Simulated scan of single mutants.
Amino acid sequence: MVKIGNIQLPDFPFLLAPMEDVSDPPFRRLCKMYGADLMYSEFISSEGLIRDALKSKKKLDIFDYERPVGIQIFGGDEEAMSLSSKIIDTVQPDLVDINFGCPVKKVVCKGAGAGVLKDIDLMVRLTRAVVRNTHLPVTVKTRLGWDESSITIDEIAERLQDEGIQALTIHARTRSQMYKGHSDWSHIARIKNNPRIKIPIFGNGDINSAQKAKEYKETYGVDGIMVGRAAIGNPWIFSQIKHYLKTGEELPPPTLHQRIEAAQRHATWSVEWKGERTGLLEMRKHYSNYFKGICNFKEYKTQLFTASTLQELDSVFQKIQKNM
């Protein structure tokens, strides 16, 4: 069993990555249905939270059916991080996660996310500010370092553990790699094998199949695996991986009916949470992923994109079911 503070997870847990504009409550609910063991909110700006920004506050929504669930924050200012930790405490998630890994320019330019990889002393101070201002377990997600010539993850792991974090997720790329090239999990294995490291170490990067999850589990000895982009439009990846690890057999790919069912649920929950107009608008980015590889689907994709009510959307799904 893997423990983060008083949170008990399975022997080898699978985590859903916090992804901006993806990992909202409707999507998390779907991934939980298909076997995700621990999930996180989209990342939330600490500055936005203390300014009472509506978008940031909306991201604090969590529901009992998705527990255990963590809220992830980012920022480059110690006071903002400590104040936002206190705000997060009031909504009672199971843990707080700090994002030191987001490589996006607008975040990095503010000295937050992966931008903090250039200043490990600041990373330590920001972590301390969060740990000291919450009663919740604190975890961190980060990358190997800024670039290939500055792989600093060894120092980061030791120093942040010393500050009191209770788990560390490592995306096995540098910031300069963004999401390109191959992730190098050998660095994660080295952290895991460091006798000083006592906290759970989770690996992230390039896990897009059950076979790869098994291979990386056995090769690198991590305590669990975080799945990110491979879960978009593919929440079944969690049940596929778990089935393969348990039986050595691959589950068949989802049928058209299962794809429709998942997309329909996702859209319904999205509308319930965001309202019909916004919920349907924000679902558009998901349809291509749910129906990836389906031949002659272009006409239906257009209809899914133009549906302006849940009722219209349901009738498109019925047409797909009947005609394909």
Rank of each mutant, 00 (worst) to 15 (best):
E250D: 09
D89R: 05
K292C: 09
R175L: 14
L122F: 00
I201Y: 03
T309F: 03
I320Q: 00
L117P: 12
Q264Y: 04
T309P: 08
P103D: 06
Y290A: 09
P254T: 06
G35K: 08
N204H: 07
G111A: 08
K118C: 05
L117V: 12
E215K: 12
P18Y: 12
V227C: 10
P252R: 10
H171W: 09
G293R: 09
F202S: 05
G221M: 04
S239T: 15
T169F: 02
R125V: 00
P253I: 11
D52Q: 14
V140I: 15
S209T: 15
N194L: 02
K319N: 13
I207R: 02
Y287S: 06
T152Q: 10
R128E: 15
K57P: 04
E78T: 15
N99M: 06
L54N: 10
D64G: 01
V96C: 00
Q161R: 13
M123G: 15
H243C: 08
T219H: 05
P26E: 08
M33D: 11
I201W: 01
T278Q: 13
K110S: 15
M81C: 12
E155W: 04
M39N: 03
D154L: 03
Q92M: 06
S41W: 06
E312I: 02
P18C: 11
G275W: 07
R265E: 08
L280Q: 01
Y34Q: 07
F74Y: 15
G115P: 11
I120E: 08
I88H: 07
D52I: 00
G221A: 11
S82A: 14
L126T: 08
I98Y: 02
T247N: 10
E250V: 09
T127Y: 11
G164E: 10
Q72C: 13
Q264R: 14
T139Q: 07
D77H: 07
N323M: 11
R259T: 02
N6D: 14
S85A: 15
E47L: 12
Q311Y: 09
K298E: 14
K214F: 04
I294R: 08
G248P: 10
D24R: 14
